[in-house]
Design a protein around this nucleic acid. Structure first.
Lengths: 229, 229
DNA sequence: ACGTTATTGTGAGCAGTGCTCACAATAACG
DNA sequence: CGTTATTGTGAGCACTGCTCACAATAACGT
């Protein structure tokens, strides 16, 4: 019954990942050491390679898990709100993003930090990597259907309409360009703000970054998405 | 006359940094190797430590240079515009940010990527790290003085006004909170967008990221900063 | 139930890393 | 011109990722 070994494999893989996360949180991904993990597990360092092809592959698997975790978090926050309460949903997901990031700073850093040059995400990492964004996209669609109109101007730049046709198709949605532009702008602002905070670029600026962040989310919801209530 | 040695020191330091940048661009900061640099320079690896206390210190010096470079770039772009042409100045600095980042992706990644956990920026790195943001702040002040009004709403959250008093004081400016909030939002959005693009999070979304970026800058200038022309 | 096969763990070993240190050469300075 | 401080050297330490031949053993087919 393909049992004892498969079970052990699961446990050991999980323990390796757990210890890897601990190390990354305290020393950074660059200083993650498979040998140290092996030592902590009282195993030979070479045994690690029975579970992960390489250090990089371990990191990749952690990244995929992180994508799933942040998506879970945002989806859950969104799901708690009444479907037609667009404004609350936006605020909930914005807050959940930052909350997750603050609770798991090194996990956030692993996802949204500098990748290795030339790094091509393995095919099975791209789907999880889109989940968290899909939550936003569903919100935009719902907002549009509910009659909200993004109060932004499409710029007169040639090529914009064409580009956004591609974007809509790539994202598998169909929205007014205004709404999509507003949504992507708000999205970029939230992640920009979180990265600034987590990566230490505004330490000397804010006393309570959360206050600013909430104001940002509120203001962008009103001003860009047009979901003022 | 304290000559031959001081001159050599400058040259060698510069060459080390140059080779370090090449390595970082091709293999990432995590894989930067002092020994490899020494090999390329036909020197003993221990000689590197006559010029830099450690690998981390080399990286820190590169970061400071990068801060200076991006600030130079933004300042120069801004300086090319008529002082009273707020809108052009905003667009010029937004574009120059992305242009610089695309031209020096690994340098951008070094600055805005995940820092080592617990990393405390050495005192002499914090000033250069503010220069590029000061360009934005000066623009906001000029816009305010010129009579532009940010068309955004301050959220009714308790604590916001107090927080923003601190922010204004920390940044050494005095602006309507609306303008400051709008400015920081736009700033976060631009950096969020650039990081998304450079770190590979929107590869499957955009065909011409630049088109979207310009639209973003244009739209945020109009919609948030109120500098529609 | 038994023999074959595939999986797991081992320890030695290779090539690489950052960094230190005693030492020699030499430019800079009083 | 002699002393001092700076620069470069090579050996060496402790560490890393990763490979490989080998032994133990769970899983599977007959």
């Amino acid at each position: 019954m393909t049992g004892i070994r498969a079970a052990a494999r699961k446990e050991i893989s999980a323990e390796i990942k757990r210890l890897a996360r601990v190390q990354i949180a305290s020393k950074g991904a660059a200083n993650l050491s498979l040998r140290e993990i092996a030592r902590e597990m009282q195993m030979a360092s070479s045994a690690m390679y029975r579970y992960f092809d390489s250090r990089d592959q371990l990191l990749t698997e952690l990244i995929v898990e992180n994508y799933d975790n942040i998506a879970d978090s945002v989806e859950k926050a969104d799901a708690k709100c009444a479907r037609d309460d667009i404004r609350s949903r936006w605020m909930a997901m914005a807050e959940s993003l930052r909350t997750w990031a603050l609770r798991h700073p090194s996990d956030y850093g692993l996802i949204f930090g500098t990748p290795v040059p030339g790094y091509a995400a393995p095919p099975d990492t791209v789907d999880p990597g889109r989940r968290y964004t899909n939550v936003l996209l569903r919100l935009l669609v719902d907002a549009h259907v509910a009659g909200y109109v993004a109060t932004v101007d499409i710029p007169p730049a040639k090529g914009f309409v064409k580009e956004y046709k591609h974007v809509q198709s790539n994202l598998g949605i169909s929205l007014p360009d205004e709404m999509l532009l507003a949504g992507l702008a708000a999205w970029a602002a939230m992640f920009g703000a979180i990265s600034f905070e987590l990566f230490g670029h505004v330490d000397q600026v804010f006393v309570n970054p959360g206050t600013h962040y909430s104001a940002l989310a509120h203001m962008l919801g009103e001003q860009l998405l047009g979901i003022s209530n």
